[in-house]
Design a protein around this nucleic acid. Structure first.
Length: 872
DNA sequence: GTAGGGTTAG
């Protein structure tokens, strides 16, 4: 027995020293040795040889059981090994044999047999030393029972860093980063010697936890332990900093490395790209080339991503040929990123060429190609490819489906989008935040906010993009109140921070409501968070102020926008236009062109609108011609509508009529409607009748046009015609869209409809209006009764006029706000002529400035005058 | 260390 013990310990020394030798040489390869099953056979055979040398010939029975067990292990016959073990007695089995069996359990990922071996060990009271404990821990780790593996570490002192590393790694892989860090801390307090793998493994956990603090502490510890010069450790630190947006810290580690390998370069380049610094990534790539470092597939993949990001097609092409020279041309990843790069750079033909020539196309290839088609608006092709991939047996994944949804969103394909939604439900894709956001966006862009809201409400987890998508969807689909209340909810919940995009999404809602105070509140939020430097935010803020009637404020902010783009100029040009300051619009338009910014069709709409609302006919024609001949922009219906409006307002009615008849595209109701408005201003009933028939034919259900025509008849006192028209409206079952006006007072929006007496201040309002009316009569003004669409006694008409919603709102504003404050009223329809006259007088009598925004433009009333000068 | 997906202003 004594001899046996001596032999065992000597063989045990052999066993350990062979491993120790390996670990000193190359720790990384040691891990790989244990992980691949081929290598484990090698380990087992080393153990077996060592053991065979050491056995004594007089104890055959012991040899037999252990030899047979090891032969089973060598042959990978786990079942027989465990069966034999279960019928063996404690004294028949050598602990190192148990190690071999456990190793086989670990390699075959067999928790069932592993547990049997464990109970054999415990049942027979084997002393679990560091070696046996290590194998037990490895078995549980590889078999996925990480809790049990952890328990082994609690009870046995495991000496080798390797086994700690493996469990740490598995914990991290399972998402238990804190567990992984906990194990690391235990390792630290146990005084177990760490190796480079320990550090790269644990920095991944800190990285995934986004624990910058923890990672920085680890960095300090690494430097103290002298592992700072180790390449793989430094690489993992670089990766850690890059993943946590500490690009400068990453670069510092990178720069201080004595020898950078291809991985160091690749992670640094890729880190730049994923942190939105594609150009720095590219310049590092150039440095990499000149340093003589060989590039590999990962390098190219990152560089293609940078090219795609920065739309650098020519550089992408150059790298393409570089990759071909490096013989990467047939690699699937190479082709996938290549085709994606071409698609994102707008060279779809090259993408298609790469796609066609690929021998093996994966779901990634298809997804990139579908996204490429979608980007170019080729929805049909995208959907075709989606069907084709299913036919070829390649199942779409969440990435593919989001690409298809994005395609539906861009092309407003609600029906196709709904089908994709059904497909998602049928295929049970499960919850994915990207997918749900894409679904919401599709519904929102297709105008179906109810379905978008449903998706939103059913999301178990929402991120800021989910909120931005739903708020922006409501904003764009004219549900301004819903957009604002969701924005408030987001702020109240305090779970997520409203970002630049949120603000850019919600400001148009304030703009459409003319919610000046709410807009100012959001302006404060923007300043507190430093969001003004974001151009989208600044532009939408300027637009909001312009649309809330605060034109000077809009201009002040516009001047603050550091680098103005086309949208910045356009909102300001449009702002002046809707306030009737056409000359300033034109001046800005010219300044924009001088600044080297090319106008697009929307900026031309803005300047043409400004010309028409200021009666600048010659200028309007000039811009129309510049657009067509200098800028080569084909006019759209909107541009034609501006010209017709401009001619009609200025009394050039027959010119406008001829202009419409000669349009190269068929005019819509808006175009004829603009002329109809002109007919009203210039009291041309005959032409109006002719034009109205065209409008009614194009939009038979739009009540606004019938009302307009009725007004034209009423103003000409053709009451019979008014009656006939009213009957016609009745026959169609149409009801007049009620006029409504609102005013924000101390943060609360007060809404009035015509004849409204529900407001608590009604009596005061009516008394005030009667006083104003009396003063008006004294000053020689008679009520503009023809604006009341009622054929009745003059008195009744006057009363009906008094009830117009904009008068009520203006009166409330004057009565309930401090003297210096500007009255801001918004109306959903155009302002009525009598209200317009009355507003002029109110501004004079009360010495208050009134800003009235109607559905068409702004009216600034001051000292008895209006800024529109009759162009409305 | 490595490819494909979702949100913003006129």
């Amino acid at each position: 027995m004594a001899m046996l013990v001596a032999n065992l310990s000597s063989s045990s020394f052999c066993f350990c020293s062979s491993l120790r030798f390996q670990s000193q040489k190359d720790i990384g390869s040691d891990v790989r040795v244990l992980r691949s099953s081929k290598a484990s056979l090698r380990t087992a055979s080393i153990e077996y040889r060592d053991y065979a040398d050491s056995i004594s010939t007089f104890d055959r029975s012991l040899t037999d059981a252990n030899t047979r067990l090891r032969r089973f292990c060598e042959a990978g016959n786990l079942e027989s090994a465990v069966k034999l073990l279960s019928v063996s007695g404690k004294w028949d089995i050598d602990p190192r044999t148990l190690c071999s069996v456990l190793q086989l359990c670990a390699d075959s990922r067999s928790l069932k047999y592993g547990k049997e071996v464990d109970s054999f060990i415990r049942g027979n009271g084997f002393v679990i030393d560091s070696n046996l404990g290590s194998k037990l821990a490895l078995m549980y780790t590889n078999c996925g029972d990480l809790k049990e593996a952890g328990r082994v570490f609690d009870h046995v002192r495991i000496e080798k860093a390797l086994f700690w590393n493996i469990l740490m790694n598995e914990l991290a892989k399972s998402g238990d980063f804190s567990g992984s860090i906990g194990l690391f801390k235990k390792m630290l307090s146990s005084g177990v010697e760490m190796d480079s793998y320990t550090f790269s493994c644990i920095s991944k956990s800190f990285s995934s936890l986004r624990s910058v603090n923890g990672g920085e502490q680890l960095h300090g510890f690494i430097l103290k332990s002298g592992f700072g010069d180790c390449n793989s450790v430094a690489n993992s630190l670089v990766a850690f900093y890059l993943k946590n947006q500490r690009v400068e810290s990453a670069r510092k580690v990178f720069d201080e490395m004595t020898e950078r390998d291809v991985i160091s370069w690749n992670s640094m380049i890729n880190g730049y790209v994923s942190n939105g610094l594609a150009e720095q990534g590219l310049s590092l790539f150039v440095q990499m080339l000149s340093s003589g470092m060989d590039i590999d597939l990962a390098t190219i993949v990152s560089v293609f991503a940078s090219c795609a990001d920065s739309r650098l097609l020519s550089l992408g092409r150059a790298v393409h040929s570089l990759g071909l020279k490096a013989c990467l041309g047939r690699q699937e990843r190479f082709c996938n990123t290549l085709l994606d790069m071409y698609a994102k750079c707008g060279d779809l033909d090259s993408s298609i060429a790469v796609f066609t020539e690929m021998s093996d196309r994966s779901v990634v290839s298809y997804t990139s190609m579908i996204a490429g088609y979608a980007r170019e608006g080729l929805a049909g092709e995208a959907v075709k490819l989606f069907t084709e991939m299913e036919e070829k047996g390649i199942s779409p994944d969440v990435y593919t489906v989001t690409a298809v949804l994005n395609c539906c969103a861009r092309n407003r394909l609600l029906e196709e989008g709904k089908r994709v939604h059904e497909w998602i439900k049928e295929n049970d894709m499960g919850f994915d935040i990207f997918l749900s956001n894409a679904l919401m966006d599709m519904y929102a862009k297709c105008g179906s906010m109810q379905e978008a809201e449903l998706v939103f409400s059913e999301m178990p987890v929402k991120d800021i993009i989910s909120w931005n998508t739903i708020i922006g969807g409501y904003s764009k689909n004219c549900y301004a109140n819903e957009a604002l209340s969701l924005f408030n909810l987001l702020l109240e919940e305090k779970q997520l921070n409203a970002d630049e995009r949120t603000v850019a999404c919600v400001l148009p809602a304030c703009a459409s409501l003319s919610a000046f105070d709410k807009g100012r509140e959001i302006h404060g939020y923007i300043m507190r968070n430093g969001y003004f430097s974001d151009r989208h935010v600044a532009n939408s803020l300027v637009d909001m102020y312009a649309k809330c009637g605060a034109l000077l404020l809009a201009r002040l902010l516009f001047d603050e926008v550091a680098s103005k783009d086309l949208v910045s100029w356009t909102v300001m040009i449009a702002g002046y236009g809707m306030h009737g300051i056409g000359a300033e619009s034109i001046a800005l338009f010219n300044r924009m062109r001088e600044a080297g910014i090319e106008p697009d069709e929307i900026s031309f709409v803005s300047v043409l609108y400004a010309c028409s609302h200021s009666g600048l006919v010659d200028e309007g024609w000039r811009f129309f011609n510049i657009m067509r001949h200098e800028c080569k922009i084909e006019p759209t219906l909107e541009h034609y509508a501006c010209i017709v409006d401009m001619l009609a307002r200025t009394g050039n009615l027959s010119k406008a009529y001829r202009f419409i008849e000669n349009m190269p595209i068929p005019p819509d109701a808006t175009i004829w409607g603009a002329l109809l408005c002109g007919c009203r201003i210039h009291h041309d009933v005959k032409l109006a009748e002719k034009v109205a028939e065209k409008v009614f034919a194009l939009e038979p259900d739009n009540t606004g046009y019938y009302v307009l025509m009725a007004n034209i008849y009423a103003e000409a006192e053709k009451w019979e015609e008014v009656k006939r028209l009213r009957k016609r409206i009745g026959r169609r079952g149409l009801r007049k869209n009620p006029g409504c006006s609102w005013i924000e007072i101390k943060g609360k929006v007060n809404i009035f409809v015509a004849g409204d007496s529900s407001h608590p201040e009604t009596e005061k309002i009516e008394a005030f209006l009667r006083r104003v009316r009396a003063r008006m009569r004294e000053e020689g003004y008679s009520p503009q009764t023809k604006y009341a669409l009622i054929d009745a006694e003059e008195m009744e008409k006057e009363e009906a006029l008094c009830g117009h919603s904009e008068k009520l709102a203006m009166a409330l504003g004057i009565l309930s706000s401090g003297h210096g404050k500007i009255i801001r009223v918004t109306k959903n329809l155009r302002v009525c002529g009598d209200c317009h006259e009355m507003a002029k007088l109110m501004s004079k009598l009360t010495r208050r400035e009134i800003v009235l925004r109607d559905s068409n433009r702004f009216h600034h009333f001051k000292d008895g005058h209006c800024s529109c000068r009759g162009f409305w």
